[in-house]
Amino acid sequence: MELYTFEFKAMGSPCELRLYSNEKAFAQEIADEAIVEVHRLEKKYSRYRDDSVTSEINNSAGNKNGIGVDAETALLLNYAQVGYEQSDGLFDISSGILRKAWDFRSQKLPSQNDIDALLPLIGWDKIRWKAPHICLPVEGMELDFGGYVKEYAADVAANVCRNANIQGGLVNLGGDICIIGPHPNGDAWKVGIRHPRNPSVPMSFVMLEKGGLASSGDYERFMIIDGVRYAHILNPKTGWPVNSLASTSVYAEQCVVAGTSSTIAMLKGERAGIAWLEELGLPYISMNQQQKIFGTLKRIKDISQV
């Protein structure tokens, strides 16, 4: 049994696939299959490609009959709906157009007018989703799957490997981890959790034999203006950034659930976010703006002990 590592780029991030196999050619074959799946999802839901499902849906905005979507997209939309419902409307895949007001490289804040122009086009409650038809009633409305398709792709890639009988390994898509299986000797994988203010020293370690770990932080896209940090954790109802935690990492059996959970916690702001994570019951670790650490994973490093 050898450990093979495959590095690749996808979803705008450096990615890697590590898997154990007796045969290099087989490992390569399965890795290729898994990577193809990641790229397929990337292309299918890319905002930048004209032939993506996202573009097809967004181009249909304003058409009152909407368009039909395929089974996979339908189930992803169902998932987005659950996310919206479970987060009091904060997890909203129609909020992507806020990028038109917020340019984090510009060092300039948007005006309230800029935001007000976009708010009427945002709101999952305005969208009519009745499988298999999705209707974005007003032209200019957009859907963005970017908030969870990466974690979903991690789950899919791990599943491809497991279905091929790979029993040990992990998928790492830009920091979102999905475990294929433990090391051949049964040992768990040691996964570091990034410190939001100090990228070179992990905040904590987690030992994972299975499941997924996903993180969300205010360090991903932000600008500091007059000493105030404005991060890309935008409340879809106001259009403005949330007073969020600095970072959250959540463990769940599915990476996509871990990802959505950490995103929702960040969107709820510090107090409501922590309360929500406690209620959710999944192992998590969060750091607030004052660098105080919360969560089950701060003391217990081995998930199996939680």
Partner: peptide, 12 residues
């Protein structure tokens, strides 16, 4: 035909 390409085949 990949699953995401089935959109056309799924049309009424």
């Amino acid at each position: 035909v990949n699953p995401w390409e089935r959109g056309i085949l799924a049309k009424t």
